[in-house]
Design a protein around this nucleic acid. Structure first.
Lengths: 148, 148
DNA sequence: CCAAACTGGTTTCATTTGTAACCATCGAAA
DNA sequence: TTTCGATGGTTACAAATGAAACCAGTTTGG
C-alpha cells in the first residue's frame, strides 16, 4: 500500500521551499538592486521601521532570525548610518535600536514597493486561490507553533 | 490610503519563507541525523531514486538546484559509493547518474519516513485547511511559472 | 573545414550562514 | 557579598552557497 517512490514535485516540504525560494529571490532583487541590502538587513530595516525601537533580541524574535544574523545586520546598518544604538539605562547588556533619518527614508521608500510586489503576486491568483493560500499558510503557521 | 507601515508578520514573502524554513529545517534533521546528508544531497538521492537514471542537468531541473549544487552533491554521493556515473555514448560531456545498491537502500529507507513526516504535518490541519494549502500552493506555483 | 557560439559539468573565490565559544552583565540563591 | 546560572550580544571558525571563470566537447554558420 505504501508506495516505494517519493514524488519530489509533490512533496510538500520541497514545494514550500521552492516556492519561498523563488518568491524571496524575486523580491530580494528589489532591495538588493536598490540598496544592496541582504535579507537579514532588509528584515532588520523592516522590523525597526514597523516598531520604531527594538532590542536585538526582539528583532530576532519578530523576524525569525538567529541572533548572529541580527548582530551582523545591525552592525552593517549602523555602518551605513541607517540605525543608531542607545544603551539601556538599567541593563547595560541591552541596546535599543532605532532607524536614523536616512534609514527611515529608505524604509518609507521600500514599503510601497514591497506592498506592490505582494499585490502583484496575489493578483495573479483568482479570488478563491487567494483565500486558499492565506488560509493554508495560516493553518500551517499555527500547526507549527503549537507543536514546537 | 496606502499605509506607510509594512507588517512583516503578514507579508506573504516573509511568511512563506519562514514556513518553508521551519518545515525544511525540521525535515532535514531526519536525513541529517540519519545519514549526514545535506539538502542538495537529499534531493539528488530523491531524484535518482524516483527516476532511476538522470544527467546532472536533468537533476538540476527536477529539483530546482543550481548546477554547482548538483555537481557537489553528486561528487559527495559518489564518494560514498551511493551513485555511479556512466559516460554517455554519443555525447562525451554527458554523464548518466544512477544509485548503487547502497544508495538505493538508503533511498528506500527514507521514502516511508519522508511520507510519514508529510502526513504528520498535514495531519495537524483540518480537512478544509489541507485542501486550502494544496490549492494555494499549486496556484502560486502556476503563477510563478507563467511569468518567468 | 574551421572558427565562433553553445552546452554539460567542474572549480575557484568571495560572501553568507550556522555552531559554538566567548565576554560582559544581570539576577537569584546561599 | 559572593558565586553560579541565565541572558544580551559579538566573534571565530567551519561549512554551504552563488557568481563567474573555466575546461572539455559539440553544434552551427560561413
Amino acid at each position: 500500500m505504501e508506495p516505494d517512490i517519493l514524488e519530489l514535485e509533490s512533496f510538500l516540504p520541497y514545494r514550500l521551499y521552492r516556492l519561498a525560494d523563488t518568491v524571496s529571490r524575486e523580491f530580494s532583487r528589489i532591495y538588493k538592486d536598490r540598496y544592496g541590502l541582504t535579507r537579514p538587513e532588509w528584515r532588520t530595516l523592516s522590523g525597526l521601521g514597523q516598531h520604531g525601537m527594538m532590542t536585538a533580541t526582539e528583532l530576532g524574535e519578530q523576524s525569525a532570525m538567529h541572533k548572529t544574523k541580527v548582530s551582523r545586520a545591525v552592525a552593517e546598518l549602523e555602518r551605513r548610518r541607517w540605525l543608531v544604538r542607545t544603551p539601556d539605562e538599567n541593563d547595560r547588556r541591552v541596546e535599543h535600536l532605532a532607524l536614523t533619518k536616512a534609514g527611515l527614508a529608505a524604509y518609507r521608500e521600500m514599503v510601497p514597493v514591497a506592498m506592490a510586489f505582494e499585490r502583484e503576486l496575489l493578483g495573479r491568483l483568482s479570488a478563491e486561490e487567494r483565500v486558499a493560500i492565506m488560509t493554508g499558510v495560516a493553518a500551517l503557521e499555527r500547526a507549527l507553533e503549537e507543536k514546537s
